[in-house]
């Protein structure tokens, strides 16, 4: 038997053991009245199966992961369609406008101004057909033009000027060095060196190269901080899943 075939056999055995374990444990949970055979009980079992199936990818790609992956993609897509209908199209377009056009006895008056965004929305779909794709540019023009007009002044206000203000503080007060002075200096050096790293009009040689290297150091330290926080974030997600498995499903933790 080749090592590859051997591995495959081991994987198949592991898969069968895993499925048998899932079946056995769920039969035990239902028969022992730990879980009730209702929507909540079945829901917990389905969630537990999908959680474990997803984590099985850590071992290697396998049929259980494939099943979970396809269910996930399908549910994501289906839920998106349903929510778009229930939360967007129905309350914001169908009820105030389209319903009036279909049914005669609809109470209230139609909101005709909605015809404009409706047409612009339909134009977005025109992109899917080559000959009419130019129509979508009108919708994009509206989005980009409106977005830029509204966004640029407030972004300059909030993200440039407001951020510049604390960076322009005096480094020393009465020529006395304090922790605050060191903080201000660090922020100043960090901001300038990172800005110079992202300066594309000059080659990174000589002084510019040196300053941009300092910029890289600042960037790497900030990435380290982000990485640390991310470990916490990812572990929080897995802790919540384990809590669910041990508490709601297996009832090991009360």
């Amino acid at each position: 038997m080749t090592p590859e075939k051997n591995n495959k056999t081991i994987d198949t055995i592991l898969l069968i053991i895993f499925v048998a374990f899932l079946l056995g444990i769920n039969i035990f949970l239902f028969s022992g009245k730990y879980l009730h055979f209702d929507t909540q009980g079945v829901g917990i079992v389905v969630a537990a199966f999908l959680t474990l199936a997803m984590y099985s990818f850590l071992y290697k790609d396998n049929p259980l992961f494939k099943i979970a992956e396809h269910i996930f993609v399908g549910i994501g897509m289906g839920m998106g369609v349903v929510l778009t209908w229930l939360q967007v199209i129905k309350p914001l377009l169908y009820k105030p406008l389209i319903r009036h056009a279909i049914f005669d006895n609809t109470p209230g008056t139609p909101d005709y101004i909605l015809i404009v965004p409706m047409i612009l929305g339909i134009f977005m779909f025109a992109r899917l057909y080559g000959k009419t794709s130019w129509l979508s540019r009108w919708s994009f023009a509206f989005i980009v033009g409106g977005g830029a007009g509204i966004g640029i002044p407030v972004i300059i206000n909030s993200l440039i000027l407001k951020q510049l203000e604390p960076s322009l503080q005096p480094i020393f007060v009465d020529w006395v060095v304090t922790w605050q002075s060191i903080n201000i200096l660090l922020i100043l050096v960090g901001t300038i060196s990172v800005l110079i790293y992202f300066f594309f009009s000059l080659p990174h040689k000589g002084t510019i190269g040196g300053i941009s290297r300092i910029g890289i150091w600042f960037l790497m330290i900030s990435f380290g901080a982000t990485f640390g926080y991310t470990v916490m974030g990812r572990m929080s997600l897995i802790i919540q899943r384990i809590q669910f498995l041990l508490t709601d499903w297996l009832h090991i933790i009360k």
Binding site: F72, V73, G76, M77
Partner: peptide, 18 residues
């Protein structure tokens, strides 16, 4: 694929592996 963030990630992972 889909416009659900993690479903998209799962599908891309599948493509990479297969």
């Amino acid at each position: 694929i889909t416009n659900d963030q993690f479903a998209y990630a799962a599908a891309v992972d599948g493509i990479i592996v297969r």
